[in-house]
Each structure stands twice: as structure tokens, then as C-alpha cells.
Design a protein around this nucleic acid. Sequence first.
DNA 1: AATGAATGAGTATTCATTCAT
DNA 2: TATGAATGAATACTCATTCAT
Lengths: 231, 231, 231, 231
Amino acid sequence: MGEPAGNTHTDELIVRIGRAASSDSAGATGKRGAIVQAATGLFLRQGYQGTSTDQIAAAAAVSKQTVYNQFRDKKTLFAEIILGVTATAERFAAEVPAELAEVRAADDLEPALRSLARRYLSTVLNPQVLAVRRLIIGESGRFPELAREYHRRAPARVLAALADVFSRLADRGLLTGDPGDAAEDFAFLVLGPALDRGMFHVDDDRVPEPEIRRAADRAVAVFLASYRAAR
Amino acid sequence: MGEPAGNTHTDELIVRIGRAASSDSAGATGKRGAIVQAATGLFLRQGYQGTSTDQIAAAAAVSKQTVYNQFRDKKTLFAEIILGVTATAERFAAEVPAELAEVRAADDLEPALRSLARRYLSTVLNPQVLAVRRLIIGESGRFPELAREYHRRAPARVLAALADVFSRLADRGLLTGDPGDAAEDFAFLVLGPALDRGMFHVDDDRVPEPEIRRAADRAVAVFLASYRAAR
Amino acid sequence: MGEPAGNTHTDELIVRIGRAASSDSAGATGKRGAIVQAATGLFLRQGYQGTSTDQIAAAAAVSKQTVYNQFRDKKTLFAEIILGVTATAERFAAEVPAELAEVRAADDLEPALRSLARRYLSTVLNPQVLAVRRLIIGESGRFPELAREYHRRAPARVLAALADVFSRLADRGLLTGDPGDAAEDFAFLVLGPALDRGMFHVDDDRVPEPEIRRAADRAVAVFLASYRAAR
Amino acid sequence: MGEPAGNTHTDELIVRIGRAASSDSAGATGKRGAIVQAATGLFLRQGYQGTSTDQIAAAAAVSKQTVYNQFRDKKTLFAEIILGVTATAERFAAEVPAELAEVRAADDLEPALRSLARRYLSTVLNPQVLAVRRLIIGESGRFPELAREYHRRAPARVLAALADVFSRLADRGLLTGDPGDAAEDFAFLVLGPALDRGMFHVDDDRVPEPEIRRAADRAVAVFLASYRAAR
DNA sequence: AATGAATGAGTATTCATTCAT
DNA sequence: TATGAATGAATACTCATTCAT
């Protein structure tokens, strides 16, 4: 349950997002994978409308028709990419809470939450993750169902996982209050400021690790002031 | 329990966003104003790339060349609109905290914060405000400076205003802790969940008033558990 | 009323078809007229699908967008051209019968019919008229209503005009039988063989004048064997 | 009066056109036959340019390359199909006159001609036959030689066959006049109006049998008024 | 002989922008 | 200043055809 790691998770995630749909959806024929990888990067940088199929084909070093042979149309390609990314995020959500559930003593709670908060914050501040959020928010008008689906399967699922863990901690007398409320408060105390800033500041330097640590620790303190069970 | 509506503020805002740049930026020749108003609606609904100058000219009932006479090019028009909207949001930020500063007794603090939280939440959940956020986030790749500027002058300024008020309340012994931290925690306890959801759920029904009230009140309770000064 | 003319009518027609829609539909702005004239030729030679908007723009020496500014889309341009041609053909139909109605004596009937038959045949054998027929027939699957409209307003109207004249001649005791039947029999005795051949033989030499005369005269003879009123 | 149906011939024809090239041109591997059958239907409905090789391959349930293995290119496939259809029509032409030649007495002539006229008209009005005509006429610009060939081997051959029969009837003193002229006049008196209408009216209801009978009978009457040998 | 994947040229249409009036 | 007409470059997508297996 130590501190250091954090970025291990994050870095894995970066790689995963890049390859998301290519390794997920099918056999990754090479061509198909190249298209997905190229298109993912372009969409993230330029948005849906700002990315032309010509660009995608060129970046993937295939002919335009090959793109259409593999994906029917641009919308389908976009949706498949977003869904691939979503699946990756979803899988990440599933991994999160396991460790926390194993906290034994009351004294271990705060460090465990800090560790979780740091990893959580660090993950969400990853530039690619931010870019995915921006992209989906920006295209939510054109792909409303995709945006809802992403929210349901990524951020909302993390909240559900947190609520689940908190509920179990409450059962063991370590936390009080409604677990769902606790999950929301925890999540946005941790992420809120950085995520808000991250949405509007593109290409900024990554938030330095000590600042992440400080923010996470403060969030945990405020959280525990309300939700720590009285002895 | 506190203030009557809170929607007064919100509704003013809606109107203002519509007219934002037209009344703000310049002379509003009528023609110019019509263009701004038409373009604002289109950009909010369809994004920058999804909106053509043809559509704008048609919606404003002017010729395309008139659009170019007034704004040099599409980018300039977009920037001017966003800056107008930003100015509106900025002015709103300035108004917010005034009332809170006048809290006299410790007993008045919680209701006053609740009232503020409700109005704050209700304002940010306004569909047009959400649409502005989505638009700017979505175009942050294409207009990074604009996005930074918006963040600086709208959400960040609200935080600063809150910090300012909290600082004064701390001076009078009503709150403890760092005012800047307090402002962030307050803001995201209040807004976090709803704002996150609002970014991804387009065209959903507005959050009903009672739910807003409940969320605001809970946020205030968690906030005060950490930041209320000991007697 | 003598033989010679015939081709005067025909040649006028050629010119008219070329300019049909351009002089008909509107002011013939020059650009618009050029597009219509160019597109008419291309459509007649290559069909609807075989003609690209690029070709049309190039042949009219305008930019492609100008074509779209003037006609919304390719279908509209095609329809407008066909309707222009149809209007020309319709006007021709209206002129036909006048002269025949003035036949005074029984002895004048046969020469008058011969003259009509020759002019009729000569007109329909005009290469441009044949090309129009081929084009409309070939595109009747894609533009069924246009094809019906053409038939209603061109060949069918000629039949109606003939029936009208024959009816008046019957009233004056020069012909017998049902005028509608007479019109059909006259028309296809005259046109049938040449028209059938003309549909399938593109770019062949024009049928020489003597042959036209012979065919017309024979058709009239067969016609009169059935429809000449007994003295 | 006269023959029972006449549709026997027509219905056979429908089937034949469908299978035309497949059973005609070569071995009909099954694959090859499927391609021809699929392409025939598509070409008839959509024209040459309106039909893609993708559609053909899909409709024949073979891969696109198989189409190219069998036919070199689209033009070749089209030509082979049209020639197959032409051969079918040609064979039909050969069958027609046989019966008429056996007319014994003068009194049998009119009913025999009526029967022929009805069957002839009914055959040509068959929707598939009309579609073939429309297709070939429509593509006569792109495939002029094919169109000529079709005309030579289908309609023109029917005329020749009629002329042949009429010549023999003239030899036996039942008809007068030039047999070639008689054949043309007979053919277009019978077919003219319906064929003209049929070219421009796609997908209309079939002409009802009684109307066909009436048209055929009138044509025969007009024909005989000119060509019946004086006793 | 048959396939699935690939290609380069071409399709209709729309874009942001400018010119003549 | 405002317009209607014009432009050249780009848009998403499809075509007939070929290659590797």
C-alpha cells in the first residue's frame, strides 16, 4: 500500500488508450490496428470534424478506401474508437477498489485512502485521459449516446466502485454516512480542481507529483472529517 | 430555509449569454448584433467546425459578405463570441459573494452557505452554461488560449471570490483553514457530481429543484465539518 | 401547300433545344445559360450518370460551386434541362396542326397530309430530338416522373393535336372513323419504322430527304385507305 | 375468337431473359450463371452506370474478383448479357411467323393476323422486354455497336420474318403490295402507340388484355384495308 | 478458380473566403 | 456598408480494378 507507484498505473493507461480499440475490437490485422491508432491520435488532437478521412488514411499509411472497407464510415470509426477507449477506462475502474477493501485496522485507513487518492488523481490528470474527456465532451452534441455511454461506463463506474468499497468499510465500522454520498464527495474533493483546470488547459505541463500528493492528502483529510466513524 | 428561488440569477444569465457579445463587444449595429446572436446559438448547438458561415449568414438574415465585413473571418467571430460570453460569466462571478460577506452571527453561516450553494449549483446547471462549457472544452484544441482565458475569468474567478469571502469570514472567526483550499473544496463539493454528469448528458431534463437543494445542503454540511471554526 | 420547307422547322428546333432551358427558365445570366447549354450537350451525349459535375463546370467554363449555386444539385439541373426541352417540344406540338385545318377541298387533303407527314418525320428524325428521346428513356428508371411528364407534354400532345385536326376534318366530311384512332395510326405509320431505327442507331447519317418523302407518302396512302371518307 | 392466351409465349420469354446469357453464352458454371442473372436484373433496373460491380458481386453472392475472373471487366459483362438477351429475342423472332404461313383460305386470314398481332403486342409490352429496350436505348451512346446489333437481330429480324410470311401470302394471292412495306406498316400499326407509351411509363400497370385485343384488331383492320388482295 | 484486402482515381457536394456592384 | 455571384480547395464517400493468398 505504499506511495511510490502511482505512475505505473498511469503509464500503462497511456499505452492502453493508444491501442485501445485496436487490441480490443478484433484481430488487429495490422492495417486495421494502424487505422485505429492513427485515427485515435488525430481525433484526440483535432476533434471529429477537424479530422479528415484523408488525414487518417495518410497517417495510417493506407488508402482511403481501406479505411472505409474496415469501418463503413467515419462515424463508425469514431464510435468504435470511443467505445474501445471506454472499455479500457471501464477495466481500470474495475481494478481500483480491490486493495482498499483489505484495510484491516482503523489506523490504516487514512494512508490507504491517500494512496488511492493519489493514484486516482494521477490517472485522471494523464494528458491522454484528459484529451479523451475533452473529445467526448466536445462531440457530445454530435454523439450524445456515446457520451452518455462513456460517462456510464467510466466516471460513473468508478463512483460505483468507490461506493462499494466505502459500504464495506462502513459495515466494518470504519466509515459512516451514505456510501454513495461518500463516494461522490471523495471523488470530487480529490479530482475537482485539477480536472476542472485540466479541461481548459491544453498541452500544459503535467502537474508535478508533490502537488498531486498534497491535493490528494488534503482531500482525504476533508473527507475523513465528515465520514470517519466515531470510535 | 433560505432564499426563495435562486433562478432569478440563472434566468438573467440565459438572456445575457444570448446577447453576450452583441451588447458587450462593440456597437451592435443591429446587423452585427444579429450575426453574433445567430452565431452564438449555432456554435453552442453544433460546435465551431459544425457551423458554416452560410448557416450563420442565413440565421442572421444577412449576406455572407456582411459577416466577413464585420468579423474578418470565422475564427475572429468565434473568438469574439467566446470573449463576450466570458465577460458575462466574469461579471456574474463578481456579483456572487457580496451577500455572504454580510453574515453577522455564527448561526447565520450555514443557511447563508446553503443559499449560496444552491444558487451556485443552479446557475452552473443551466443548460446554456453547460453548453458554453462543452463548447469551449471541445474547441480547446483549436483555441487553447481562449479556453485558458475563459477558465481564468470565469470558474477561477468564482473560486477567487469565494476565497476572498471565506478569508473575511475567517478573520471574523467564523471559519478556519486556508481560504483558497476552502473555496476549492466548497466549489467542487457543491458542483462536482452535477457538473461532471452535465458535461456528458446533453439535452437531459434539468435537475429538479429539490435535488439541487439536497445536493447543496449536503455539500455545505461536509464543508462545515472541516472548515467551521471551533467555538 | 407545298413540299420544300420541312427542314426550316427542324433546324429551328435544333437551335431551340440547345438553348431550351437557358432562354426559357429565367434571365439567362450568361453563367446560368452557359451551364445549361454545356450540361445539355453532355447529358445528351453521355447520359445523366455518365456526366460529372466537374465536366459540366469545365465545359461551361465556370467553377463547380457556381453550378451548385445556380441549381442546388445535379438532379435539379437535369430536371430543369429536361423540362426546358419538353417545353420546346410542347410548343412545337402546338404549332403543327394549324395549317392542316385549313384544307378546303377533298383534293387538297392528300397533299396536305403528305406535307405534314414529311415535316413530322423530318422533325422527329432530327439527331437532337432522337438524342433527347434516348436520354429520357434511358433515365426513365431514375426519373420516372420526368419521363411521364415528357411523354404527356410532347408525343402525347402531338397525338392530341392530330386528333383535334382529324376531328374537324371529319366534321367537314373529309375523313371518317374515330379521330383518336386516326391520329395514332397516322403517327405511327409515319414515324414508326424510322423512330424505331433511330433509337438504336446513334450517330448514323441523317436519313436522306427522298427517303423521308417516300416513307411519308406511303404512310399517308395507307392511312387514307382506311380513313378517307367515302364520297 | 382465336387463340386462347398468347401469354404462354410471353411468360416463357420472361424466364428466358432472366437466364439469357447464363444458359446461352457459355458453360454456366453456376457461379458464372449467378453473376449473369444478378447483373441482368441490376442492369435492367438501374442501368449500366447505376450498377456497381460491388452490387453485382453481392447480388450473385460471389466475390468481386470472381466477377472479374469470369468477365474481364464490367463492359464485357454488360456486352455479354446484352448479347445473350439479344439471342433470346432473336430466337423468339424466328418462331413467330411459322403458324401464319399455314393459312389456307382467304377467310382465315383476318383471324390469323389478329392472333399474331395480339401475341406480338402482348410480348413486346412485357415489362422485361420493355426494360431491355429502355436499357439498350439508354446505353446506346456508350455501346453503339451493341445497340445496332440488338436492333438488327431483334426488331429488324421480326420485320424480316413478317415480310417473309407476307410475301408467301402474296404469292398465294391473299395479300398485295410490297411485303417489306406491309411488314413495317403491320408492325407499327400494332405496336406503335403501346410501345411509345411503354418507353416512358416505367412501372405502370400492365396493359389489360381486352385493350390489347382491341388495339390489335384495329391495327389488323387498317392493315387489311390497304394490303388485302382484291378477290 | 476463388477470396478478402487493397488501391488510386473519381463521385457529388460543401467549405471559408473574395470579387464586382 | 451590404449584396449576390463566384472561386479553389476540401469534404465524406464510391468506383472499377488488381494483388496476395
